[in-house]
Simulated scan of single mutants.
Amino acid sequence: MLSRLRKYGSWFLAFFFALAAVLWIASGEFGGRNEPDARKEAAHLAARQQIPQVRVRTQTVQQHTQTLVVQARTKAEKKVTVAAETTGRVVELLVDKGDTVEKGELLARIDAQDKPARLAEARARLDQRRIELEAARQLSEKGYRAQNQLAEARAYYEEAMAAVSKADIALADTKVRAPFAGQVGDRMVEVGDYLTGGAPILRLIDLDPIEVVADVSERDVGMLHIGDSATAELITGERIEGRISYIASEADEDTRTFGVEMTAPNPDRRARDGVTASLRVAVRQAPAHLLAPSILTLTDQGMVGVKYLDEEDRVRFQEVNILSDTREGVWVTGLPDEVTLITVGQNFVNVGQEVEPVEESDVVNSLEGTPLDLPQDAPGKPGPEARP
Protein backbone atom coordinates (compact mmCIF):
# COMPACT_ATOMS: atom_id res chain seq x y z
CA MET A 1 0.00 0.00 0.00
CA LEU A 2 2.76 2.40 0.95
CA SER A 3 4.67 1.54 -2.17
CA ARG A 4 1.60 2.30 -4.36
CA LEU A 5 1.15 5.66 -2.61
CA ARG A 6 4.75 6.51 -3.32
CA LYS A 7 4.38 5.35 -6.89
CA TYR A 8 1.21 7.37 -7.70
CA GLY A 9 1.58 10.27 -5.18
CA SER A 10 2.99 12.70 -7.76
CA TRP A 11 0.05 12.01 -10.12
CA PHE A 12 -2.51 12.72 -7.39
CA LEU A 13 -0.76 15.98 -6.52
CA ALA A 14 -0.82 17.15 -10.14
CA PHE A 15 -4.49 16.22 -10.49
CA PHE A 16 -5.32 18.19 -7.35
CA PHE A 17 -3.65 21.42 -8.58
CA ALA A 18 -5.38 21.14 -11.99
CA LEU A 19 -8.80 20.70 -10.35
CA ALA A 20 -8.19 23.72 -8.13
CA ALA A 21 -7.30 25.87 -11.17
CA VAL A 22 -10.47 24.86 -13.02
CA LEU A 23 -12.64 25.67 -10.01
CA TRP A 24 -10.96 29.12 -9.61
CA ILE A 25 -11.57 30.05 -13.28
CA ALA A 26 -15.17 28.87 -13.08
CA SER A 27 -15.82 30.93 -9.99
CA GLY A 28 -14.59 34.10 -11.79
CA GLU A 29 -16.75 33.46 -14.89
CA PHE A 30 -20.01 32.86 -13.09
CA GLY A 31 -19.58 34.83 -9.91
CA GLY A 32 -18.48 38.24 -11.38
CA ARG A 33 -21.28 38.89 -13.84
CA ASN A 34 -21.02 42.72 -13.56
CA GLU A 35 -17.43 42.84 -14.87
CA PRO A 36 -18.26 42.06 -18.57
CA ASP A 37 -20.89 44.85 -18.62
CA ALA A 38 -18.29 47.29 -17.35
CA ARG A 39 -15.86 46.22 -20.02
CA LYS A 40 -18.57 46.61 -22.69
CA GLU A 41 -19.39 50.12 -21.43
CA ALA A 42 -15.73 51.09 -21.54
CA ALA A 43 -15.40 49.73 -25.07
CA HIS A 44 -18.50 51.70 -26.16
CA LEU A 45 -17.10 54.88 -24.61
CA ALA A 46 -13.79 54.32 -26.37
CA ALA A 47 -15.64 53.92 -29.69
CA ARG A 48 -17.48 57.20 -29.12
CA GLN A 49 -14.19 58.93 -28.36
CA GLN A 50 -12.89 57.84 -31.78
CA ILE A 51 -15.41 60.08 -33.66
CA PRO A 52 -13.25 62.97 -34.96
CA GLN A 53 -14.11 66.59 -34.38
CA VAL A 54 -14.15 69.11 -37.25
CA ARG A 55 -14.71 72.84 -37.25
CA VAL A 56 -17.72 73.93 -39.31
CA ARG A 57 -19.49 77.08 -40.46
CA THR A 58 -23.04 77.32 -41.79
CA GLN A 59 -23.48 79.96 -44.47
CA THR A 60 -26.04 80.98 -47.07
CA VAL A 61 -25.69 81.91 -50.72
CA GLN A 62 -25.03 85.56 -51.70
CA GLN A 63 -25.44 87.61 -54.84
CA HIS A 64 -21.98 87.94 -56.38
CA THR A 65 -21.09 90.40 -59.11
CA GLN A 66 -18.78 88.62 -61.52
CA THR A 67 -15.94 90.84 -62.68
CA LEU A 68 -13.97 90.54 -65.90
CA VAL A 69 -10.30 91.39 -65.33
CA VAL A 70 -7.93 91.97 -68.26
CA GLN A 71 -4.46 93.40 -68.61
CA ALA A 72 -4.47 96.91 -70.05
CA ARG A 73 -2.48 100.13 -70.38
CA THR A 74 -3.25 103.81 -70.18
CA LYS A 75 -3.35 105.92 -73.33
CA ALA A 76 -3.57 109.66 -73.81
CA GLU A 77 -6.80 110.65 -75.55
CA LYS A 78 -4.84 112.99 -77.83
CA LYS A 79 -1.15 112.78 -78.62
CA VAL A 80 0.27 114.69 -81.58
CA THR A 81 3.53 116.00 -82.93
CA VAL A 82 3.21 119.73 -83.51
CA ALA A 83 5.01 120.55 -86.77
CA ALA A 84 6.05 123.68 -88.65
CA GLU A 85 3.67 124.79 -91.38
CA THR A 86 6.13 127.19 -93.03
CA THR A 87 9.79 127.52 -93.79
CA GLY A 88 12.11 129.60 -91.64
CA ARG A 89 14.38 129.85 -88.64
CA VAL A 90 13.11 129.36 -85.07
CA VAL A 91 13.41 132.72 -83.33
CA GLU A 92 11.55 131.97 -80.09
CA LEU A 93 10.44 128.95 -78.00
CA LEU A 94 7.94 129.84 -75.31
CA VAL A 95 7.40 126.42 -73.64
CA ASP A 96 9.56 123.67 -72.25
CA LYS A 97 9.13 119.96 -71.62
CA GLY A 98 6.48 119.27 -68.99
CA ASP A 99 4.69 122.61 -69.31
CA THR A 100 0.88 122.63 -69.33
CA VAL A 101 -0.65 124.75 -72.08
CA GLU A 102 -4.13 125.82 -73.10
CA LYS A 103 -5.71 125.53 -76.53
CA GLY A 104 -4.44 128.30 -78.84
CA GLU A 105 -1.49 129.19 -76.59
CA LEU A 106 1.64 130.34 -78.45
CA LEU A 107 4.33 127.65 -78.41
CA ALA A 108 7.02 128.91 -80.79
CA ARG A 109 7.74 131.68 -83.28
CA ILE A 110 9.37 131.26 -86.70
CA ASP A 111 11.11 134.09 -88.56
CA ALA A 112 8.45 135.85 -90.66
CA GLN A 113 11.04 137.19 -93.16
CA ASP A 114 9.15 139.23 -95.82
CA LYS A 115 5.72 137.83 -95.03
CA PRO A 116 4.43 141.02 -93.30
CA ALA A 117 5.42 143.06 -96.36
CA ARG A 118 3.66 140.62 -98.67
CA LEU A 119 0.52 140.91 -96.58
CA ALA A 120 0.68 144.72 -96.73
CA GLU A 121 1.15 144.58 -100.50
CA ALA A 122 -1.81 142.23 -100.92
CA ARG A 123 -4.03 144.48 -98.83
CA ALA A 124 -3.05 147.55 -100.87
CA ARG A 125 -3.86 145.78 -104.10
CA LEU A 126 -7.19 144.68 -102.65
CA ASP A 127 -8.04 148.32 -101.94
CA GLN A 128 -7.16 149.18 -105.53
CA ARG A 129 -9.31 146.40 -106.94
CA ARG A 130 -12.20 147.46 -104.72
CA ILE A 131 -12.09 150.98 -106.17
CA GLU A 132 -11.87 149.63 -109.73
CA LEU A 133 -14.85 147.34 -109.16
CA GLU A 134 -16.99 150.19 -107.79
CA ALA A 135 -16.13 152.41 -110.76
CA ALA A 136 -16.93 149.66 -113.23
CA ARG A 137 -20.28 149.08 -111.53
CA GLN A 138 -21.26 152.78 -111.74
CA LEU A 139 -20.24 153.05 -115.42
CA SER A 140 -22.11 149.85 -116.22
CA GLU A 141 -25.25 151.25 -114.62
CA LYS A 142 -24.99 154.36 -116.84
CA GLY A 143 -24.35 152.28 -119.93
CA TYR A 144 -20.72 153.36 -120.40
CA ARG A 145 -19.16 149.99 -119.57
CA ALA A 146 -19.96 146.56 -121.00
CA GLN A 147 -21.01 143.71 -118.75
CA ASN A 148 -17.91 141.70 -119.55
CA GLN A 149 -15.72 144.55 -118.32
CA LEU A 150 -17.71 144.63 -115.06
CA ALA A 151 -17.20 140.89 -114.68
CA GLU A 152 -13.47 141.30 -115.29
CA ALA A 153 -13.21 143.94 -112.57
CA ARG A 154 -15.08 141.69 -110.17
CA ALA A 155 -12.67 138.79 -110.91
CA TYR A 156 -9.64 141.02 -110.22
CA TYR A 157 -11.19 142.03 -106.91
CA GLU A 158 -11.79 138.44 -105.80
CA GLU A 159 -8.27 137.51 -106.84
CA ALA A 160 -6.93 140.28 -104.64
CA MET A 161 -9.05 139.05 -101.72
CA ALA A 162 -7.56 135.55 -102.13
CA ALA A 163 -4.05 136.99 -102.16
CA VAL A 164 -4.69 138.81 -98.87
CA SER A 165 -6.02 135.60 -97.29
CA LYS A 166 -3.00 133.65 -98.51
CA ALA A 167 -0.52 136.21 -97.20
CA ASP A 168 -2.37 136.38 -93.89
CA ILE A 169 -2.19 132.61 -93.45
CA ALA A 170 1.51 132.57 -94.36
CA LEU A 171 2.21 135.15 -91.67
CA ALA A 172 0.04 133.32 -89.10
CA ASP A 173 1.94 130.10 -89.78
CA THR A 174 5.05 131.67 -88.29
CA LYS A 175 3.31 131.52 -84.89
CA VAL A 176 2.99 127.90 -83.72
CA ARG A 177 0.00 127.48 -81.38
CA ALA A 178 -1.33 124.57 -79.32
CA PRO A 179 -4.12 122.72 -81.19
CA PHE A 180 -5.62 121.62 -77.83
CA ALA A 181 -4.99 121.92 -74.10
CA GLY A 182 -2.40 119.48 -72.84
CA GLN A 183 1.12 118.88 -71.60
CA VAL A 184 4.31 119.43 -73.56
CA GLY A 185 6.33 116.27 -74.13
CA ASP A 186 9.61 116.03 -76.03
CA ARG A 187 10.88 119.17 -77.73
CA MET A 188 12.71 118.50 -80.99
CA VAL A 189 14.11 121.95 -81.88
CA GLU A 190 16.02 124.80 -80.33
CA VAL A 191 16.16 128.50 -81.09
CA GLY A 192 18.15 129.04 -84.29
CA ASP A 193 17.17 125.76 -85.98
CA TYR A 194 16.07 126.17 -89.59
CA LEU A 195 12.81 124.41 -90.36
CA THR A 196 11.01 123.37 -93.48
CA GLY A 197 7.31 122.76 -93.79
CA GLY A 198 6.32 119.66 -91.82
CA ALA A 199 9.40 119.59 -89.57
CA PRO A 200 8.53 118.40 -86.00
CA ILE A 201 8.77 120.97 -83.22
CA LEU A 202 7.40 119.27 -80.07
CA ARG A 203 5.03 116.61 -78.72
CA LEU A 204 1.74 117.62 -77.14
CA ILE A 205 -0.22 115.18 -74.95
CA ASP A 206 -3.78 115.52 -73.65
CA LEU A 207 -4.21 113.43 -70.47
CA ASP A 208 -7.68 114.61 -69.48
CA PRO A 209 -9.63 112.48 -70.03
CA ILE A 210 -7.38 109.41 -69.99
CA GLU A 211 -8.10 106.21 -71.88
CA VAL A 212 -7.41 102.65 -70.71
CA VAL A 213 -7.07 100.22 -73.61
CA ALA A 214 -7.15 96.42 -73.46
CA ASP A 215 -7.46 93.38 -75.69
CA VAL A 216 -10.38 91.14 -74.69
CA SER A 217 -10.75 87.53 -75.82
CA GLU A 218 -13.53 86.56 -78.18
CA ARG A 219 -15.01 84.43 -75.38
CA ASP A 220 -15.46 87.42 -73.05
CA VAL A 221 -16.09 90.38 -75.34
CA GLY A 222 -19.80 89.55 -75.63
CA MET A 223 -20.27 90.36 -71.93
CA LEU A 224 -19.21 94.00 -72.43
CA HIS A 225 -21.38 96.93 -73.53
CA ILE A 226 -20.78 100.57 -74.33
CA GLY A 227 -21.40 102.60 -71.17
CA ASP A 228 -20.55 99.81 -68.69
CA SER A 229 -18.91 101.06 -65.49
CA ALA A 230 -15.27 100.05 -65.24
CA THR A 231 -12.28 100.51 -62.94
CA ALA A 232 -8.58 100.55 -63.77
CA GLU A 233 -5.92 99.77 -61.17
CA LEU A 234 -2.61 101.20 -62.33
CA ILE A 235 0.69 99.55 -61.48
CA THR A 236 1.73 102.87 -59.94
CA GLY A 237 -1.05 102.58 -57.35
CA GLU A 238 -3.62 104.97 -58.80
CA ARG A 239 -7.20 103.80 -59.21
CA ILE A 240 -9.41 105.47 -61.81
CA GLU A 241 -13.06 104.91 -62.65
CA GLY A 242 -14.80 105.46 -65.96
CA ARG A 243 -17.01 103.84 -68.57
CA ILE A 244 -16.48 101.63 -71.58
CA SER A 245 -16.36 103.99 -74.56
CA TYR A 246 -15.29 101.69 -77.41
CA ILE A 247 -15.55 98.00 -78.36
CA ALA A 248 -13.97 96.88 -81.61
CA SER A 249 -16.26 95.38 -84.23
CA GLU A 250 -13.59 93.06 -85.63
CA ALA A 251 -10.93 90.88 -84.05
CA ASP A 252 -7.22 91.24 -84.48
CA GLU A 253 -6.18 88.72 -87.14
CA ASP A 254 -3.12 87.56 -85.20
CA THR A 255 -4.43 87.39 -81.60
CA ARG A 256 -8.19 86.94 -82.20
CA THR A 257 -8.86 89.56 -79.53
CA PHE A 258 -11.03 92.69 -79.60
CA GLY A 259 -9.83 96.16 -78.66
CA VAL A 260 -11.72 97.76 -75.77
CA GLU A 261 -11.33 101.27 -74.35
CA MET A 262 -12.40 102.86 -71.09
CA THR A 263 -12.52 106.66 -70.80
CA ALA A 264 -12.07 108.27 -67.37
CA PRO A 265 -11.65 111.84 -66.10
CA ASN A 266 -8.09 112.77 -65.13
CA PRO A 267 -8.25 116.44 -64.09
CA ASP A 268 -5.06 116.39 -62.01
CA ARG A 269 -3.25 114.45 -64.77
CA ARG A 270 -1.82 111.99 -62.22
CA ALA A 271 -2.49 109.06 -64.56
CA ARG A 272 0.22 109.07 -67.21
CA ASP A 273 0.33 107.72 -70.72
CA GLY A 274 1.52 104.14 -71.28
CA VAL A 275 1.21 102.80 -67.69
CA THR A 276 0.40 99.11 -67.17
CA ALA A 277 -2.99 98.56 -65.56
CA SER A 278 -5.67 95.99 -64.74
CA LEU A 279 -9.08 96.77 -66.20
CA ARG A 280 -12.04 95.49 -64.15
CA VAL A 281 -15.58 95.44 -65.51
CA ALA A 282 -18.61 94.13 -63.62
CA VAL A 283 -20.34 91.93 -66.19
CA ARG A 284 -23.09 89.98 -64.41
CA GLN A 285 -24.54 88.87 -61.07
CA ALA A 286 -24.95 85.27 -59.94
CA PRO A 287 -25.79 83.48 -56.64
CA ALA A 288 -22.57 82.14 -55.16
CA HIS A 289 -20.72 81.30 -51.95
CA LEU A 290 -17.61 83.14 -50.71
CA LEU A 291 -15.04 80.63 -49.43
CA ALA A 292 -11.51 80.72 -48.10
CA PRO A 293 -9.16 78.97 -50.56
CA SER A 294 -7.87 76.81 -47.69
CA ILE A 295 -11.12 74.82 -47.41
CA LEU A 296 -11.09 73.71 -51.06
CA THR A 297 -10.29 70.04 -51.61
CA LEU A 298 -8.77 68.35 -54.66
CA THR A 299 -9.84 64.75 -55.28
CA ASP A 300 -7.72 62.02 -56.83
CA GLN A 301 -9.76 62.49 -60.00
CA GLY A 302 -8.75 66.17 -60.19
CA MET A 303 -12.11 67.62 -59.09
CA VAL A 304 -12.07 70.79 -56.99
CA GLY A 305 -14.75 70.96 -54.32
CA VAL A 306 -15.54 71.22 -50.62
CA LYS A 307 -16.49 68.84 -47.83
CA TYR A 308 -19.65 69.57 -45.91
CA LEU A 309 -21.98 67.84 -43.43
CA ASP A 310 -25.39 66.37 -44.09
CA GLU A 311 -28.24 66.24 -41.58
CA GLU A 312 -26.71 63.19 -39.89
CA ASP A 313 -23.30 64.86 -39.42
CA ARG A 314 -21.71 62.71 -42.08
CA VAL A 315 -19.09 64.03 -44.45
CA ARG A 316 -20.13 64.75 -48.05
CA PHE A 317 -18.17 66.09 -51.00
CA GLN A 318 -19.49 68.55 -53.58
CA GLU A 319 -17.64 69.69 -56.70
CA VAL A 320 -17.72 73.47 -57.21
CA ASN A 321 -17.19 75.89 -60.08
CA ILE A 322 -14.88 78.83 -59.34
CA LEU A 323 -16.33 82.10 -60.62
CA SER A 324 -13.61 84.48 -59.46
CA ASP A 325 -10.66 84.75 -57.09
CA THR A 326 -10.66 88.00 -55.09
CA ARG A 327 -8.79 89.44 -52.13
CA GLU A 328 -11.69 88.46 -49.86
CA GLY A 329 -11.75 84.83 -51.00
CA VAL A 330 -12.98 82.53 -53.77
CA TRP A 331 -16.50 82.83 -55.17
CA VAL A 332 -17.94 79.44 -56.18
CA THR A 333 -21.18 77.93 -57.43
CA GLY A 334 -22.54 74.39 -57.16
CA LEU A 335 -23.41 74.34 -53.45
CA PRO A 336 -26.87 74.37 -51.84
CA ASP A 337 -28.29 77.74 -50.83
CA GLU A 338 -27.51 76.88 -47.19
CA VAL A 339 -24.64 74.56 -46.38
CA THR A 340 -22.57 73.53 -43.35
CA LEU A 341 -18.97 73.63 -44.52
CA ILE A 342 -16.03 71.90 -42.89
CA THR A 343 -13.46 74.65 -42.46
CA VAL A 344 -10.83 72.89 -40.34
CA GLY A 345 -10.04 69.17 -40.42
CA GLN A 346 -11.49 68.39 -43.84
CA ASN A 347 -8.28 66.72 -44.93
CA PHE A 348 -8.44 64.21 -42.07
CA VAL A 349 -11.94 62.81 -42.63
CA ASN A 350 -13.42 60.73 -45.41
CA VAL A 351 -16.68 60.96 -47.31
CA GLY A 352 -19.42 59.12 -45.44
CA GLN A 353 -17.61 59.27 -42.11
CA GLU A 354 -19.53 60.43 -39.04
CA VAL A 355 -17.95 63.42 -37.31
CA GLU A 356 -18.61 65.71 -34.36
CA PRO A 357 -19.08 69.30 -35.62
CA VAL A 358 -17.77 72.28 -33.66
CA GLU A 359 -19.08 75.67 -34.72
CA GLU A 360 -16.48 78.33 -35.52
CA SER A 361 -18.37 80.85 -33.43
CA ASP A 362 -18.08 78.57 -30.38
CA VAL A 363 -14.31 78.34 -30.87
CA VAL A 364 -14.01 82.11 -31.15
CA ASN A 365 -16.14 82.71 -28.07
CA SER A 366 -14.13 80.23 -26.05
CA LEU A 367 -10.92 82.12 -26.84
CA GLU A 368 -12.22 85.57 -25.91
CA GLY A 369 -10.33 87.07 -23.03
CA THR A 370 -7.49 84.55 -23.32
CA PRO A 371 -3.96 85.06 -24.69
CA LEU A 372 -5.14 83.25 -27.84
CA ASP A 373 -7.87 85.81 -28.56
CA LEU A 374 -7.40 87.55 -31.94
CA PRO A 375 -8.72 90.87 -33.27
CA GLN A 376 -11.79 90.54 -35.47
CA ASP A 377 -9.81 91.37 -38.60
CA ALA A 378 -6.81 89.21 -37.75
CA PRO A 379 -5.81 86.61 -40.40
CA GLY A 380 -7.11 83.19 -39.47
CA LYS A 381 -10.01 84.37 -37.33
CA PRO A 382 -13.49 83.54 -38.71
CA GLY A 383 -15.37 86.58 -39.77
CA PRO A 384 -17.08 88.32 -42.70
CA GLU A 385 -14.03 87.70 -44.83
CA ALA A 386 -14.83 83.97 -44.62
CA ARG A 387 -11.40 82.91 -43.42
CA PRO A 388 -11.40 79.69 -41.36
Rank of each mutant, 00 (worst) to 15 (best):
R269V: 04
E41T: 10
A230G: 05
G98S: 10
Q53I: 08
V364G: 07
G28F: 11
R256F: 12
I342Y: 07
L119F: 04
V283M: 06
E41R: 13
A286Y: 08
D186K: 13
V70C: 02
D228C: 01
L150G: 06
V306P: 02
T87C: 01
A160R: 06
D215F: 06
N321V: 13
R33N: 08
S229G: 11
D215H: 10
E35S: 09
G274N: 08
I25N: 10
F317P: 08
T276Q: 14
G98C: 05
D325G: 01
K78N: 09
P200L: 09
R55D: 13
P179M: 12
V91H: 01
K115R: 15
M262G: 03
A120M: 11
D252R: 10
K79A: 15
V61Q: 04
L296C: 09
T340Q: 14
H64S: 09
S249E: 11
G32M: 13
R6G: 12
E218P: 03
Q353L: 09
A108W: 01
R284M: 08
A83G: 02
Q62S: 15
R118I: 03
K79Q: 15
I247Y: 05
N350I: 05
D186M: 09
R130I: 04
G222K: 09
D273F: 05
E385H: 11
R239M: 04
S324K: 11
M262T: 02
Q113A: 14
L106H: 02
G185M: 07
H64C: 08
S217R: 03
Y156Q: 14
S229I: 00
A277R: 05
H225Y: 09
Q147R: 13
N347T: 10
A199M: 11
Q376H: 08
A46P: 00
D111I: 02
L68T: 00
R187V: 15
R203D: 15
Y194H: 11
I201N: 08
H225F: 06
G185E: 06
L224F: 05
G88P: 03
R187A: 07
A288W: 03
E360P: 01
E35W: 14
V164W: 07
G274Q: 06
E85Q: 15
F317T: 08
T196G: 15
D252C: 08
T370W: 11
L279N: 05
E319L: 06
P116H: 12
D220T: 01
A214V: 04
A162P: 01
R270Y: 07
V339W: 04
K381A: 10
